[in-house]
Structure formats: structure tokens, C-alpha cells
Design a protein around this nucleic acid. Structure first.
Lengths: 158, 158
DNA sequence: GAATAGGGTTGCGTTTTAAAACCAGATTCA
DNA sequence: TGAATCTGGTTTTAAAACGCAACCCTATTC
């Protein structure tokens, strides 16, 4: 059977993963954030198969994470640039990087050092924060129960 | 051909995605954060095939995101609980949820309302922050260049 | 003692993925 | 001008991964 899709899930995490939750999409977005814009550069940097890259770029464009821009006067050259929606993935990518650096540090390699361009200081670890800025763990957060519009049999389907 | 793995990538984002970057793993972690612990409950809530769930749980246990705990005196019943590494995925899950709610809102449905248990106030949107707490966009952050230990041909392989 | 629940595993057919070959338009090189 | 090259793809083929249903084995419950 076909892979299960989450397009119409009532869980926004599932819907997000539906767009960027596969093995390659977030890496493509990451490289776009580094400044990569051209097909061949994504291909070389990621070592991804060309057909898969085609598919991922097209899907990201469909989902408005990237936009395809024709450059070079006569066509035949184009760029893939992040949209605002795509740039909005920045905290997710940084959080993944910090998690990876913390829990799966590469031996013999210092983690990438991300810094605030203005002050030159390292950025903070990403946390969930309360209204007044305290970091919150899973246990500090509750889901405010809403009256579901659907039948209760579906209530658990997050 | 086999799916490409990123185990030994020198990019911590790739290494993170190697552990939780497939279609199901983060949803399993999400439900674990909601309190789900038993095989059958994950299966019912997610609607995932049993063999796939087996595989994902085993992989998450291997990667120490979950730990398998035997409960019930005579075995035959066990629970999957988040480790600290697993709980540390909280900001990523919340950031994904906020991104999904912002860019792919479900029609006819109010997004989940996450609140600080202590104050009852809604949590903040997750952002990348400077040392003094200013929110930073992609463009506000730079990578401090480090002298790579590897040959320059590999330098671009993030 | 039979039925049920929990946690899997096994087969089987379908879908994705990876790799490499091939393509066609535009540009550069000789 | 004509050949080689660059760019962004599509096609082909084989190996995994996925989804489903059926089966299994160990408790526990009726």
C-alpha cells in the first residue's frame, strides 16, 4: 500500500511532517539557508540522486517552502529560493542541529558555531518558553482542553 | 537501492534526521510526550502498521530516545518511555506544531493550545535567540568559520 | 478450558529510493 | 561553425521500505 500521508490529519505536527518530514527535505532547506540555490549545487553538496532531488524540490515548491525563479535571460537556468514559510523553518533546523550536537556529537569534530551576526555572541539553546521567558519542559506544559467538534471516537487522533 | 543513511555525516542535522527524520518516528515521540506508553495504544492512536511500529520503537530504543521497560510481574507487558534524550526533542516537536499551525492551519479546527502549567498562560512561539534574548532570523546568524580538520574537498559537505 | 489481550513476526504485493544512463536546450571553447 | 560542456531534468532497473492481513506465543480473565 501507498505510504500513509498526513495531509488531512487534524494534528499540525503530522501536517508539518507531511511537507518536510522525509529524509531529504529538511536537508535541502538547510542548504538553502546556507545560500545554495542551484540544482547542481544541491546535488553536489547533498550527494542526493538527481531524480530524488527533482522530486523534493518540486514538492517543496508545491508546498511553498521554496520558490522557483528563472534567472539568465533565456531561461534554462533557475534558482530555488526560500519563501517566508521556508525561512520560518529556521528554529526547527537549529533545534535539530543542537539536539544532534548534544546527543550524537561527531567524534573528532567541533560542532558548528552559530553566532548572532550583530554581537558575535553564540546563539542560545532553543527552548520552549513561558510567557515570561522561563524554559519549559514537557512536564511543565499542558494542553488546554478544547471541546472537539468531531465525535469522541476521533478525539485521541492527534 | 538502499536508502541513504546519514549516521556518519559530519552534519549534526543529518545525524539527527537519521534518528528521527522518517515519516513516523517524531509522531511516536509526540504521542509518548502525550503520555502514550503501550504498543497497542501507539498503534491505535497513530494508525500505523504493527510491523512498522515494531521497527520504529526498536530503532528509537536503539538510539536511546525511548527505553523499553518491562512491567507486570511476569513479563509479557512492557512500556516504552521517553529518555532524557527523547524529552529533549520537545522544542523540535513544539516548533513543528507551531509551524504547521501557522502555515497549514486545519480548516474548521482551532490549533492545540499549549500552556504553561504553572501560570496557565500560553507558551511563546519558538525562536532562535541571541545571548540577550533577541529573536534572530536566518539572516541574523552567521557560522563562525572553524579550521576544518579534513581536506578542503570535503569542506562543503555539511 | 476457552476466550481474550499484549506484543510481536511472517508473507506478500505495492511504493519509494538510489544509481546510472540518457536527453534537450543554452553556452563556452577551439 | 562545430564540438564539448553545463544545466535541469526524465527513464530504467533493482533494492529497500511500507501497509495489510494472518499467524504466534505468553499471560491473564471468564
Amino acid at each position: 500500500m501507498a505510504r500513509k500521508r498526513f495531509d488531512d490529519s487534524n494534528c499540525s505536527v503530522a501536517r508539518a511532517l507531511n511537507e518536510v518530514g522525509d529524509w531529504w527535505s529538511l536537508l535541502v532547506v538547510l542548504h538553502a539557508m546556507y545560500g545554495t540555490r542551484r540544482f547542481v549545487d544541491f546535488q553536489k553538496e547533498l550527494g542526493i540522486a538527481r531524480n530524488i532531488l527533482c522530486d523534493r524540490l518540486a514538492r517543496l515548491v508545491d508546498n511553498e517552502v521554496l520558490k522557483k525563479v528563472e534567472v539568465g535571460e533565456h531561461g534554462s537556468r533557475c534558482e530555488y529560493r526560500l519563501t517566508e514559510k521556508g525561512r520560518d523553518l529556521f528554529p526547527i533546523v537549529v533545534a535539530l542541529r543542537q539536539w544532534g550536537d548534544k546527543w550524537n556529537p561527531a567524534p573528532e569534530q567541533t560542532p558548528l558555531d552559530l553566532r548572532d551576526r550583530e554581537s558575535g555572541e553564540p546563539i542560545q539553546p532553543i527552548t520552549v518558553q513561558s510567557a515570561d521567558g522561563r524554559p519549559l519542559s514537557v512536564r511543565d506544559v499542558l494542553v488546554k482542553e478544547l471541546v472537539p467538534k468531531v465525535d469522541s471516537a476521533k478525539k485521541k487522533a492527534v
